[in-house]
Design a protein around this nucleic acid. Structure first.
Lengths: 134, 134
DNA sequence: GTGTTTGCAAAGAATTTGCAACGAA
DNA sequence: TTCGTTGCAAATTCTTTGCAAACAC
């Protein structure tokens, strides 16, 4: 990872340790929506002494900075999504694959103020069959 | 609960035990999106000997019959929603309250077939502030 | 009677915590 | 030097399982 990017993370208030760097590198451009375990397995190849606590720690820090999103999808475990642009998700009900749906979807979100609600963001989960499973 | 309703559940293939009845009664019309623990706490007042296994058992059976939906919302624990009509959810990012959004939302879900995806259903989570927290 | 459900206790998965040692800035 | 991070192990939290007894139908 280049210095500019590291400086960017630092300016956000993240201390950059080698472990964190490895996690950031693994997440960068990753569209597989990994679980904490996926991240642990991958990064601990490079840092065999690394613990889960560090993974969760780092993920929590990244979440606070808005660099990743936590996805809670049926199946229990949390998944982490480093895609910074607003998007939605398709979940294959057979194989479990999660696909980013990046197209912007027009949604009439008027009338929420009448209900006294202020919407900050919304997230859509589509469920169905992916091209391999249909 | 009246006999007709019980018969309805029986015809779905559910054996109706007193514990299950109590769970069904608790869920009927319930819009609080309870966790398994909420259900356990409430029903165990009537059946102090009841175990969590029975709660999870029953919820699993109801889920299979399509009578309830499982919601996975940030925070880790599963929530259960007995509202049978298609709807979406608003989650208050401050107090955690979950509100049903029952209005039908037009969503252009064309083009998914071009991506090779077959959509069975979709679910929208809105995040923001509720009337008390804004 | 038959097969399912219950309750218990124990196991299991996923995540979080306490704390001493370490290391980035 | 300072304060946040790491690694370890243990603790928590939430959910599931195995099995004998009880129960619905």
């Amino acid at each position: 990872m280049d210095k500019d990017k590291i400086d960017y993370y630092r300016r956000l208030g993240l201390k950059i340790t080698p472990q964190r760097l490895a996690i950031l590198e693994y997440l960068e451009g990753n569209t597989s929506h990994p679980t904490a375990e996926d991240i642990y397995r991958h990064v601990s190849e490079k840092f065999p002494s690394m613990s889960f606590a560090t993974v969760y720690n780092t993920l929590e820090a990244l979440k606070e900075k808005g660099l990743i999103t936590e996805l809670n999808i049926e199946g229990g475990r949390k998944r982490f999504d480093p895609n910074p642009q607003p998007h939605h998700h398709f979940v294959c009900t057979k194989c479990g694959k999660i696909i980013d749906i990046c197209k912007s979807l027009d949604l009439k979100i008027q009338n929420f103020d009448q209900m006294g609600l202020i919407i900050e963001k919304f997230q859509i989960f589509f469920y169905g069959r992916c091209s391999k499973c249909k």
